[in-house]
């Protein structure tokens, strides 16, 4: 991955002037590159990584393994596109192995997720079976540990 993207993946709020210094570019070049990534759709958006467990939201998150019948034209894409439109779906991937789609969903209550699975997901034509797992605690999300890092234990001055 391009160094600029790596930096933004780590901290999307990094200022173009800082990025320019780190990469030995001009600020203008950095801005132009970012604009280009956005235009091409390589950068899809910027979000905060939130530790939801800390917020007492009582929301429920689940991972659902879905088996589907591939279609003659388009394989898994049509069903995936349909599923992706549901706002409950946080992320969605095609998998190799024992099932086809892995779906991450969020709901306000257990019931919401259950309803989503039984009424929306399972009823889609081509869906053969589903298997739902509820998430209990998140330890790491998008490369970020959810526990606060311990303090630097190094001596404050060393040769």
């Amino acid at each position: 991955m391009d160094e600029l993207l790596k930096l933004l993946r780590k901290n999307a709020l990094e200022s173009p002037s800082n990025i320019a210094k780190m990469l030995g570019l001009t600020e203008k070049e950095v801005k132009a590159k970012i604009a280009e990534y956005e235009k091409k759709g390589i950068i899809r958006g910027y979000q905060a990584i939130v530790n939801k467990d800390q917020l007492d939201l009582n929301t429920v998150r689940a991972v659902i393994e879905v088996k589907i019948t591939p279609e003659r034209e388009g394989g898994f894409d049509r069903i995936a596109a349909r599923l992706g439109k549901f706002p409950e779906v946080e992320s969605l991937s095609l998998m190799s192995g024992g099932y086809d789609l892995l779906v991450f969903v969020t709901g306000a209550h257990l019931k919401d997720v259950a309803l989503f699975v039984s009424e929306k997901l399972a009823t889609i034509e081509g869906v053969l079976s589903t298997s739902t797992h509820f998430m209990l605690k998140t330890y790491k999300d998008q490369g970020v540990l959810m526990e606060t890092e311990k303090e630097d234990e190094r001596l404050k001055v060393s040769p």
């Binding site: 630097d152 190094r154 001596l155 404050k156 001055v157 060393s158 040769p159």
Partner: peptide, 20 residues
Amino acid sequence: FFDIVSTRKDIISLSIGEPD
């Protein structure tokens, strides 16, 4: 220098000769 620095709190140290 270490003796002086260690009397202070909340400093940012660029004085450390080992990887972070």
